[in-house]
Design a protein around this nucleic acid. Structure first.
Ligand SMILES: NC(=O)c1ccc[n+]([C@@H]2O[C@H](COP(=O)([O-])OP(=O)(O)OC[C@H]3O[C@@H](n4cnc5c(N)ncnc54)[C@H](O)[C@@H]3O)[C@@H](O)[C@H]2O)c1
Ligand SMILES: NC(=O)c1ccc[n+]([C@@H]2O[C@H](COP(=O)([O-])OP(=O)(O)OC[C@H]3O[C@@H](n4cnc5c(N)ncnc54)[C@H](O)[C@@H]3O)[C@@H](O)[C@H]2O)c1
Lengths: 231, 231
DNA sequence: ACGGGCTTGTGAAAGGGTGCACAAAGTGGG
DNA sequence: CCCACTTTGTGCACCCTTTCACAAGCCCGT
């Protein structure tokens, strides 16, 4: 049952692999710009900061695109990963909440270059509506449904205060947006089938603090023996 | 050997648990503000968006702070988690690269409230140095070592362009900073013992795109049966 | 004082992810 | 044409994480 069709992608890439593909892609694009034609799993893994066996296993989920004794053809791999990630098409993005963070995102040039087009900026503040940010005019939040529909928005970014985030998410979902990137520090409730990812800077800092504290606590002791205690 | 000392923390909290503690903490603080005295694992899990068994196992790593038949005392749990995460002390933070993103972070009020004090803003651009951002004067990057030493900075945030990030990280490390939060889209190379976390918005968008594409591809089919394929 | 009803804490099972180690497969030199 | 060398693709064992299911424990009403 496992043979007969030499089909490359098996329709079921592990989540952990998906999360690393963008990292590989970036490393590959850097190689591409430098004109490197092929790269070994060892070298690419080094550049991506992962184990080379992991890299090979990850890539094997896309198909057998390497050549034994040689490595991977950079150009080809860039194409394959891009296709797998859906970057060969453009995705229309809307940002809601044009404050400190929303403005920073809107002004950031790094998205447009690769597959993502910021199509709309929305805010509830009348003073904000109508202003130009990053060569887009900020629209009123009330036009969310209309904008999503007419411009084919499929990814919504939420940078409103925490209180407003759930309402915005719900409106996004009802307007047909299936992917949400949330910067507000709240747990969003969405129906099954809608994909939410959150970026939470406070959480990142708190995780750093946890490890920093642990390091500080261990500094007085011999680090090797984890059995010591002084209650 | 596992008894005798009723010691609460066993010195070894799983990484996955650490990453969720901040989420629980936030949910608990919301309950606290609303004056709720106790909460069940079921209710707290709901608020944090996780499974209740997972929540209980996570909390059990901190000690036995619940009461069977009742739940957890909100106040007490807030204190325990805060202590475990190292939020009972203040952490001095330095931000390097005061551009779009660095400015947004500096202006963000949400950090100072809980354990993190932004102590320094540094940039390489002479036009930027000397300006006031969020009631701090932007310093020159050359003073990094001095600032880290004199103000006790233990967490470094990097919001420079990608090209500059590695150099900044290295200087942070050599100045004694053991925790780095990196927003630049590069893999940082640091010695063992230094903790680096990265926040990469492009990667988040690409992961969303992957799932969106997969959803779109499956839409033509019956969603329930994952066995169908057409070449 | 005791029993009924909740809720915690945790064994145990199942599922994913990681990394080692090596056979298979390709390259290039002689 | 063959052999030595390089590098991929993957079986396997191990570890971490999640989830289920339930005994143990606590509260309150009677
Ligand atoms: N700025 C940061 O560095 C930072 C860091 C971590 C988290 N965050 C989170 O990101 C979010 C935004 O942060 P910020 O600093 O940009 O805040 P901000 O106050 O500067 O901006 C919020 C914007 O959202 C708009 N808004 C409010 N309600 C709205 C609604 N119902 N619909 C549409 N727009 C609405 C406001 O008018 C404002 O322009 C917050 O949830 C914050 O907690 C920000
Ligand atoms: N703005 C965003 O929304 C966004 C999103 C994703 C990723 N990023 C990443 O975050 C980083 C910053 O983005 P940005 O939009 O704020 O860029 P930016 O160009 O607005 O700001 C960068 C700042 O860093 C300073 N700088 C440059 N070299 C430096 C050095 N060697 N030492 C100290 N400071 C230096 C510059 O003077 C500038 O002020 C970039 O790596 C970018 O890829 C930003």
């Amino acid at each position: 049952m496992t043979s007969r069709t030499p089909r490359p992608r098996e329709r079921g890439i592990p989540e952990a692999t998906v999360a690393r593909l963008p990292v590989y892609l970036r490393a590959l694009q850097a190689l591409q710009e430098r004109g490197t034609p092929t790269v070994s799993s060892e070298a690419l893994a080094e550049a991506a900061g992962v184990n080379s066996a992991k890299l090979r296993k990850d890539l094997s989920h896309l198909g057998s695109y390497g050549t034994r004794g040689v490595g991977y053809e950079v150009e080809h791999l860039v194409h394959q990963i891009s296709r797998e990630l859906g970057l060969t098409q453009d995705w229309a993005v809307a940002i809601v909440g044009i404050g400190n963070l929303g403005r920073a995102l809107a002004n950031y040039g790094g998205f447009g270059t690769r597959g993502f087009r910021i199509e709309a900026l929305l805010d509830a503040d009348p003073a904000m509506v109508g202003q130009r940010v990053a060569s887009l005019e900020v629209g009123h939040i009330d036009s969310l449904e209309e904008v999503v529909g007419s411009r084919g928005v499929s990814i919504g970014v939420i940078t409103t205060p925490a209180e407003a985030a759930q309402a915005v998410a719900t409106r996004f979902v009802e307007a047909g947006v299936g992917s949400i990137l949330n910067f507000a520090p709240v747990v969003l409730n969405v129906p099954d089938g809608v994909d939410v990812r959150k970026v939470d800077l406070s959480i990142e800092l708190q995780i750093l603090a946890f490890h920093a504290q642990r390091r500080a606590a261990g500094d007085g002791q011999v680090a090797a023996a984890p059995g010591l205690e002084l209650t």
